[in-house]
Design a protein around this nucleic acid. Structure first.
Length: 885
RNA sequence: GCGGAGGUAGCAAAGCCUGGUCAAAUGCGCAGGACUUAAGAUCCUGUCACUUAGUGUGUUCGAGGGUUCGAAUCCCUUCCUCCGCACCA
């Protein structure tokens, strides 16, 4: 029995001592940057979900490293953020202390996983030497006009007492604590992500990302082409509204403005409607708080205002409605109930007229009898000069007209909003800005960076702890030296993660955020690995950051992450494995019992890495057993009793290497493990019948193939067969197609079957302990079937159709049906030598049954243990089945 | 509503792209056997049904149709499950 605990400790310390995984730029080698999303160091443990994620990344990094790449594979911590601050509030320890304790613990666990990180590159974003550069970038972006401050309605979480970015709001609730988010008017800092909306959208297509995540990003950016139409209010004010359906403009019967539109209050101030509208807004707020779904169906209230449709000059009423979003487009819509379901619902509810302007084929639509909006294609009616046009054709014609008359313009609208970076909390990067009454907003001078977080703060009060600092807030203006105040907001955590992948390239530079040459060498990330939950947050911000830095000439790449792999979630008892559900299995529970290699292997084996998987307590026993079996191969001193299986094992070895290499390349780690298991079983069956050299090579190869999956055992096995150096940095085994001989495996199967036959015969004949069996297989029948296939091919038969024709018109007719069962694929592929591929093996196996029918074969079998000669005759209809002598 | 991923033997999970190698890898579970005083561990065999000494036959890959000499695999319809974004004009 192998003691996995001792083995893993031994190799972990050896790796650490010799720094095998340390890398540096080496222009002579091809680089490969493999990166996992860095974790937030909150909980002081790793559960099987983590084990899975990092095992996937490590397997891939190891694979690439062994394939000769110079692999950058770093790890660090996204260590700013609310949990640390909340813990500080609760437990009375400083967030830094909490964070650094967590980091120490987590790092210990990481090291116990045996991941092949270059630990010398570890970063933690809460360290001043890191966040200094957040401040630097902030100011740079500010200078470029990519950072601005504005008063805005923002999402505010009352529980976390801070604003949240759009991307941090899920279904109207705070992503972290799940509390309902409320609107608040605040002066806030924004990154102008929208400036790159188009590029962000366009460049997605260039990336090797899953369709799913590409679609999520596309939807999030939400580009739509439309027209801005100028409606006029009664007070003469022009109010543009955005529509993608100008073809329906003659059917507008009302307008709807967002309840929280900044202009609404002002427009109805002092009118008789002010009171009812205000009351309605209050009701909606209450309903939202109470999550009253029924009330939250489309509802609204008349504002007493009217707008004039510039095309019809009709005056239509303006409602305030809850289904219109204030910060998309202009916050007001034109409503065409006949042709939009939302508008239809609303019109029905409040008894607003409906005007049909697009007719179906038989012109049978009537406003009175409609039960839902007509949203299909049709012909325009009641649309003045545009009558009888197809409505989709009319879109551009009407827009042309609108533009010509100066009533509006074509426009492109994005759903993406600017990135709100301000947080009213302590544990983040201080925003390096100063508010001066004289000079306005003034950045902190570069030479004063990093602007450190103040230490003299109290966490026992509500609100932003920074405000409790006596020294932080008041400052002299760097420009006029007058008295001024510091910005007290800190940056949201996504700032830290927007460029950390650059910092890994040169983690210790003090005069620049990253070394240009190092970044040029390592970037972009070749393989990024992480959860899909970051689809719209981190993965958009990082792309934005990269593009902005490129335009500032600090980078020369367009995209940070070439390939992205989203690993599946680990479930237990039907729920995602997480601390909050209390259904975690930690590394600590598993590793002592089975060893960490077992845990890692199991996580990779049980399901395709991109699929969700259910944790299974029993399954892990199986992988443990497997690793023990592997170890036994190296431990056992096998007395070889022959070399009859040499070529079989060699061939098998090359098949296995080829198959595993392909699988890892495609991230199909689960099937790679299966192949590995199969290989181990195979070695067991043949090891007594191969020469020592061949066995040794097979074991050498096995120990290396094992490295990405069970690295510690891999090293141990490598050492046991006297491998030099670390297995982890050996060259990945190569496969040689010419060494793969499928015929051999085919014959092997035939022999196995025959041997089984003979076993049966022995049983039947009650011969319990034969002392000799000789197995003789005639060359003639061995190749007969194969040569028949060859003959067909040489007759020019290349595909199924030709084959069936050939058979029907040939002497093979009597076996036609049977041949059709087996041959076609072989015929199709033989010219390309596909017979050399592993999967073809089974074809021969299947063919075996047929062959035994079609060809007469006689077998004499001899083994060491028996002396009785037996003749076996494969069953052919009408012939004696087996003759025992 | 829009979008994405799925439904394979007792369970988990391959196979589907590129149709014939599929009664369908592998692991778990289960059954039998070897070993053992016994249990455990380990090893071997079996595990859709009926049958055989071996072979074989029948019915299977959510359901229903279609294409094909041939479908788990391709096409259409349909049912169900999970997951994102959600009133984006």
């Amino acid at each position: 029995m192998a003691d996995f605990k001792t083995i893993q400790d031994k190799w972990q310390s050896k790796w650490a001592e010799s720094k095998v995984f340390k890398v540096h730029e080496d222009k002579t080698k091809k680089k490969f940057y493999c990166l996992e999303m860095f974790p937030y160091p909150s909980a002081a443990f790793l559960h099987m979900g983590h084990v899975r994620n990092y095992s996937i990344g490590d397997a891939f990094a190891r694979f690439k490293r062994m394939n000769g790449f110079n692999v950058l594979y770093p790890m660090g911590y996204d260590s700013f953020g609310l949990p640390a601050e909340n813990a500080a509030k609760k437990a009375g320890i400083h967030p830094r202390e909490y964070t650094e304790n967590s980091i120490a613990t987590i790092t210990k666990y990481f090291k116990q996983l045996g991941l092949s990180y270059d630990w010398d590159r570890m970063i933690a974003t809460h360290e001043p030497k890191y966040y200094k550069w957040n401040q630097y970038f902030f100011i740079k972006f500010y200078e470029k006009g990519l950072v601005y401050r504005k008063k805005a309605k923002v999402n505010y979480c009352t529980h976390c007492t801070t604003v949240l970015a759009n991307e941090e709001v899920e279904k109207g609730a705070c992503w972290r604590c799940g509390n309902q988010v409320v609107d608040k008017d605040l002066d806030q800092w924004f990154f102008k992500t929208t400036a790159y909306a188009d590029q962000l959208l366009e460049d997605i297509k260039k990336l090797d990302w899953s369709d799913k995540i590409q679609t999520i990003q596309e939807n999030w950016i939400g580009k739509s082409f439309g027209t801005l139409v100028h409606f006029k209010l009664d007070n003469g004010e022009v109010f543009p509204i955005f529509t993608t359906r100008p073809d329906t403009i003659y059917g507008v019967t009302f307008m709807v403005i967002a309840l929280n539109h900044p202009k609404l209050k002002e427009l109805i101030k002092g009118t008789p409607y002010e009171e009812t509208v205000d009351a309605f807004i209050e009701d909606v707020k209450k309903a939202e708080a109470a999550d009253d779904k029924e009330f939250l169906e489309k509802s609204g209230v008349f504002t007493g205002l009217y707008a004039t449709n510039p095309l019809t000059t009709d005056r239509v009423p303006i409602y305030a409605g809850n289904f219109v979003v204030a910060d998309y487009a202009t916050g007001m819509i034109m409503a065409v109930p006949a042709h939009d379901n939302r508008d239809f619902e609303f019109a029905k509810k409040y008894d607003i007229p409906i005007t049909v302007v697009i007719q179906n084929d038989d012109h049978s639509l009537k406003a009175e009898t409609m039960t839902k909006a007509y949203t299909d294609e049709g012909t325009l009616v009641f649309s003045s000069d545009f009558n009888d046009l197809n409505n989709f054709d009319a879109i551009s014609k009407i827009t042309d007209y609108i533009e010509k008359k100066g009533l509006g313009t074509r426009t492109i609208q994005y759903r993406l909003k600017d990135w709100l970076i301000s947080r009213q909390r302590y544990w983040g990067t201080p925003i390096p800005m100063i508010h001066c009454d004289e000079c306005g907003i003034v950045p902190v001078p570069f030479n004063e960076l990093p602007l450190l977080l103040p230490e003299d703060v109290r966490f026992d009060q509500t609100g932003n702890p920074i405000l409790t600092s006596k020294h932080f807030v008041h400052v002299r203006c760097p420009r006029c030296n007058g008295s001024a105040t510091r910005e007290t907001d800190t940056m949201g955590g996504f700032m830290d993660s927007s460029w950390y992948f650059l910092r890994y390239c040169s983690p210790n530079t003090t005069d620049v955020p990253f070394d240009a040459d190092a970044v040029k060498y390592w970037m972009p990330v070749d393989q990024y690995i992480g959860g899909i939950e970051h689809a719209v947050g981190h993965l958009i911000y990082s792309r934005f950051f990269t593009k902005a830095l490129r335009d500032m000439k600090m980078l020369s790449i367009d995209e940070p992450f070439n390939a992205l792999f989203n690993q599946g979630v680990v479930y237990k008892d039907g729920k995602k494995m997480s601390k909050s559900y209390g259904n975690i299995i930690t590394q600590e529970e598993i590793a002592p019992k089975y060893g960490i290699d077992t845990a890692r292997l199991f996580m990779l084996f049980v399901a395709n890495p991109d699929k969700e998987m259910e944790w299974n307590d029993q399954g892990i026993e199986g992988t443990h057993k497997f690793l023990q079996r592997v170890y036994k191969l190296y431990e056992d001193k096998v007395e070889s009793i022959g070399n009859t299986k040499d070529s079989y094992l060699i061939s098998k070895q090359h098949i296995v290497v080829q198959s595993i290499t392909d699988d890892i390349d495609k991230f199909k780690l689960n099937t790679a493990v299966v192949t590995l298991m199969d290989y181990v079983n195979y070695i067991y069956t043949v090891r007594e019948n191969v020469s020592p050299g061949v066995l040794r090579e097979a074991l050498e190869v096995l120990s290396l193939l094992l490295n990405p999956f069970a690295p510690h055992l891999s090293e141990e096995c490598w050492e046991l067969i006297n491998g030099k150096g670390f297995a982890s940095v050996q060259k990945w085994p190569e496969h040689d197609i010419s060494k793969i001989d499928l015929q051999l495996h085919y014959i092997e199967l035939l022999i196995d079957n025959t041997v089984n036959d003979i076993k049966s015969v022995l049983e039947l004949a009650k011969i319990s302990s034969p002392t000799e069996i000789e197995l003789i297989i005639s060359e003639e029948w061995k190749y007969k079937f194969y040569s028949m296939v060859k003959e067909l091919v040489s007759n020019g038969i290349r595909n199924t159709g030709e084959l069936s024709k050939h058979i029907m018109s040939s002497e093979l007719k009597k076996h036609g049906q049977d041949i059709m069962k087996v041959l076609p694929k072989m015929v199709d592929k033989l010219p390309e030598q596909v017979l050399t591929q592993g999967t073809e093996l089974n074809a021969f196996n299947e063919a075996n049954g047929l062959i035994s029918k079609m060809f007469d074969c006689a077998v004499r079998v001899v083994t060491a243990e028996n002396s009785k000669e037996i003749k076996a005759r494969q069953a052919v209809p009408g012939k004696p089945a087996i003759v025992v002598k």
